[in-house]
């Protein structure tokens, strides 16, 4: 292969990558111009300019309460998953025990367990307990779903912390708790914050599992958006999507600043 051929090959690869990036970005970004459309339906190209769809979000109370529900469930389940995830990550990093690999694999199962089956199963379990349309049922399901993500980021961060730091802290007279509080936790913080942000997003956007657990009086935002789009496809949905895109972009920036987005996925 001569240099010109290599150059052509590289250009072709770059052009292809650009094409795939466009494919990935198009359906996401196309929502934004339609949010400012003056049409009454999601028609492309949009005609006129209007902010009334953003006003409609505020006018319809159900979106507000669904947003609050989603935010609350995301916060509680992330907090619980963080505590449980960090504890088990410490166990995996600091201890060698029989069945360690298998247990880790089992802890990761929520990642690939078919969401539709998980949702149905949780509903079947909660229904006789009278917890079907409760915040607690949703929180439990979301905690299970995001637990593997928290575990994975905690593991990755913990593995990077030098073991000699523990020993140094012990030598200098710190007890277990002090070592954790003043040495390990500060080092864990950026990784954990990034993992938490990512978990908040996953919980906030969760649809398939929550579908079985919500009901009249208890809705999450994705479900409310879906229900709305079922009976009217006006730009209100595009407006909410735009708001969510802004929030997501801020979250991505936070993670990127803290540890780099790549860490979340390696």
């Amino acid at each position: 292969m001569n240099p010109t051929q290599i150059l052509t090959g590289e250009r072709a690869l770059k052009a292809y990558v650009l094409l795939i990036l466009l494919f990935l970005a198009l359906p996401i970004l196309i929502v934004v111009p339609l949010a400012f459309s003056n049409d009454v339906s999601l028609t492309f190209p949009p005609h006129g300019f209007s902010l009334r769809w953003f006003g409609n979000i505020l006018a319809r109370r159900e979106f507000g309460s669904a947003f609050l529900n989603s935010a609350m469930i995301a916060c509680i389940s992330t907090a619980i998953a963080m505590v449980i995830g960090i504890l088990s990550a410490i166990a995996f990093v600091r201890f060698q025990f029989p069945g360690r690999e298998t247990l880790l694999l089992l802890f990761m199962t929520p990642l690939i367990f078919p969401a539709i089956v998980f949702g149905a199963a949780v509903a079947l379990m909660l229904s006789p307990l009278g917890l079907l349309r409760s915040v607690w049922g949703l929180t439990l399901a979301h905690t299970v779903l995001i637990f593997p993500y928290i575990l994975r980021t905690s593991l990755a961060t913990l593995f990077e912390i030098d073991k000699s730091l523990h020993e140094a802290a012990y030598t200098l007279g710190a007890n277990r708790w002090q070592t954790f509080r003043y040495v390990i936790l500060p080092l864990l913080r950026p990784g954990l914050l990034a993992g938490a942000t990512f978990s908040l997003i996953i919980s906030f956007d969760e649809f398939t599992v929550s579908m079985f657990l919500v009901g009249p009086g208890l809705m999450t935002l994705p479900l409310e958006m879906y229900n709305y789009s079922e009976f009217s496809l006006d730009p209100t949905i595009a407006a909410i999507s735009t708001v969510l895109l802004v929030i997501t972009s801020i979250a991505i920036l936070i993670i990127e600043k803290l540890v780099g987005l790549g860490k979340q996925f390696s």
Binding site: I28, I30, L42, D205, L233, A238, S241, L244, T248
Partner: peptide, 13 residues
């Protein structure tokens, strides 16, 4: 990290 509903609505557009 973008809501699946947002992405699917994008495709309907």
């Amino acid at each position: 990290m973008v809501s699946i509903i947002v992405r699917t609505i994008g495709w309907t557009i």
